[in-house]
Design a protein around this nucleic acid. Sequence first.
DNA 1: AGTATTTTGTGAAAAATTTCACATTTCATT
DNA 2: AATGAAATGTGAAATTTTTCACAAAATACT
Lengths: 216, 216
Amino acid sequence: MKNRNCIIRLSRYKTALYRLKALGFVKVFSDNLAEAIGVMPSQVRKDFSLFGISGKKRGGYHIDALIERLNEILGKDKVHTVIIVGCGHIGSALMKYRKFEDGGIKIAAGFDIDPAKHAQDADIPVFPIDRVKPFIKEHNVELAIIAVPDIAAQQVADMLISAGIKGILNFAPIRLRCPEGSIAHNINLELELENLIYFVNVLKKKRVNPDETENA
Amino acid sequence: MKNRNCIIRLSRYKTALYRLKALGFVKVFSDNLAEAIGVMPSQVRKDFSLFGISGKKRGGYHIDALIERLNEILGKDKVHTVIIVGCGHIGSALMKYRKFEDGGIKIAAGFDIDPAKHAQDADIPVFPIDRVKPFIKEHNVELAIIAVPDIAAQQVADMLISAGIKGILNFAPIRLRCPEGSIAHNINLELELENLIYFVNVLKKKRVNPDETENA
DNA sequence: AGTATTTTGTGAAAAATTTCACATTTCATT
DNA sequence: AATGAAATGTGAAATTTTTCACAAAATACT
Ligand SMILES: NC(=O)c1ccc[n+]([C@@H]2O[C@H](COP(=O)([O-])OP(=O)(O)OC[C@H]3O[C@@H](n4cnc5c(N)ncnc54)[C@H](O)[C@@H]3O)[C@@H](O)[C@H]2O)c1
Ligand SMILES: NC(=O)c1ccc[n+]([C@@H]2O[C@H](COP(=O)([O-])OP(=O)(O)OC[C@H]3O[C@@H](n4cnc5c(N)ncnc54)[C@H](O)[C@@H]3O)[C@@H](O)[C@H]2O)c1
């Protein structure tokens, strides 16, 4: 029911709603949202009913109220503080990304083992890794992004969790294990590319032989 | 049946197999793979049977043969050339990532609209954006990574597809539309963080009130 | 060689997710 | 105020995906 895909759809509805709002719309119907994110209108209504979101028959949903409700459900009604561990290529790209802040995600600091990466006076400071535990405790940080090499990732994750981190977004190409009470989501870009390659091949086979292949 | 999740699992099995192989294993059973990627053994066997992969009863699967077969299914039995459009923070992080090449994914060049990003003599060169069409045609490139600002992304995608690109991995936070015969996968990092935030909140509610909440 | 044990491969069952379909409500128009 | 059209909310149906469970095969052991 309230599975990962459903939550992802809620985020997508929200993105679509912000765009519709910017376009001047005040209310929206399930088919507008369905069209925007590429699902059936009944899916939109089912998702909403799962969270007790209701609109008005014939009147649809009020955009502002809907955005507010979705933000509340998604926990985006307050600012979330995140730290980044591993300020190499990916880590520093993320640190420089300003749009997270617009979305209520504040990157408080970076941490790295390499002194060359340290920048304690920068806009978003980068501290030595041994400062991470006290930092997490002092600032009550619950979220971390891991962008260290794969061999170090599990060890870093364990350390962060022991310091109080509850949620990790991991870019190292391994599946992080974590104990009850904490959670890790893994982003594996090579896997994403591999996946894309597979579906491009399916597509090509379909062109050559439209019958023998099935849909992607 | 052969849905996206199934293909993702195949990639994961492959990763696990490489690790098991490096550890000295020669054969593997469905429960080893299941344990490694966190699914049921019957899921592993079902996935394999879907692609006509078979092992030996009581003997399991031969790791080398299995890796080879998976690579073949996933289209990883040859090197794939990729270009990157938009060599800003994310784009250049990806260009500097050496492990793609180990996995048979070769980043041939980058393209950017900003002359300050151009580097025609670099290891992986960065060319002006107007060179991208001839490059795609000349080198028969089918895959592209888009890492331009969101407002430019759809336009860039259309251009790439018209030049012959079949598969796009998109980092801009919009859902790219593309015509029949081409495919785009979207990576939305803010959505991933939002999703993580939701599940961390579910976790916290569960701690406070173990009954009223359901599993993540 | 024969027996016991382990593991696959796969239909069938179960579970999860999506889609349908329609009664009900609301809004617009006359 | 009455009528008609449009959109929601939701059980039920359909579809998809996962898990079960067990017969058949391969290996190990005696
Ligand atoms: N760069 C990419 O495009 C890309 C793509 C896919 C996956 N990844 C993955 O993301 C991770 C980071 O990649 P990258 O390219 O940024 O690598 P990188 O080498 O540029 O950065 C890694 C950083 O982590 C730091 N580090 C190492 N061990 C540490 C520790 N124990 N504690 C704190 N910091 C530590 C290093 O000093 C370095 O600054 C890797 O796991 C990589 O496989 C990167
Ligand atoms: N940096 C991140 O951590 C991050 C995180 C999430 C999402 N993203 C998304 O990834 C994309 C890139 O982000 P970034 O931080 O690397 O931005 P950036 O501004 O650093 O880089 C964008 C690059 O694209 C180039 N560009 C702009 N228009 C172009 C065009 N028409 N053709 C070719 N090149 C063009 C720019 O010159 C620039 O070099 C954005 O859509 C952003 O929303 C980035």
